[in-house]
Design a protein around this nucleic acid. Sequence first.
DNA 1: CCTCGGATCAGCT
DNA 2: GCTGATCCGAGGA
Length: 221
Amino acid sequence: MRRRGRAFFDRPTERVARELLGHRFVVRDRRGIRSVRLVETEAYVAHDPANHAYRGPTRRNRSMFLRPGTLYVYRIHQVVCANLVTRPGEAVLLRAGAPLGEVRDRPSGPGRLCRALGIRIEDDGADAARGRKFLLFPSRGRRGPIAVGPRVGLRRARARRLRYLLLESPWVSRPRPRGRGRRLTSASPSGSRAGAKSRRSRTTRRRPSGGGRSGVRSVGR
DNA sequence: CCTCGGATCAGCT
DNA sequence: GCTGATCCGAGGA
């Protein structure tokens, strides 16, 4: 089966993110060949405050402005995460995969996926559309139903549903949808806010949680 | 320069 | 569910 080339990535980011599900992502180097079947992605698009390229090119995000199919690798909290660039300033975060063959550990979560595949910060800027080290192959056979939901771990742009996952995969990084139509959000009385603003360091600041639900919804195939 | 939040994760309640 | 680790990049408090 032929690898994905430039044209595959040079399309609207949401579409690429969705179609990447089921693809085989292969890393080849001296240590050997490692690969996963992608089961979870997120799109980072133009005019998106959560996008690293939101304010234009910087040294860190410069590979987001290279050719479609470029690997954009960044580090957060000592953890490395990888994206595939689509159009300038847009990319798809690789969040989870199902292991194929020998993989060190569970590739569930963007940091864990990179660790399992041996992707390092030095791989930033590599060309996955043509290079020898990173290759993408279309899925064989059926892919299964897809779900869409809010992206993980963001403070900004939480409303957008740009996370894509294979509904039936046990390798996704976070909970799959609950039962249909289930509502756990109780209408909260307006006066019931916590009174005392406790002092929190920036690292302990509470993240706005989605009310306990994953927010992911099934969206068919 | 200095500040501060972060596309995470492991580990705990 | 919640917390802290731990340090870098981006922006200007």
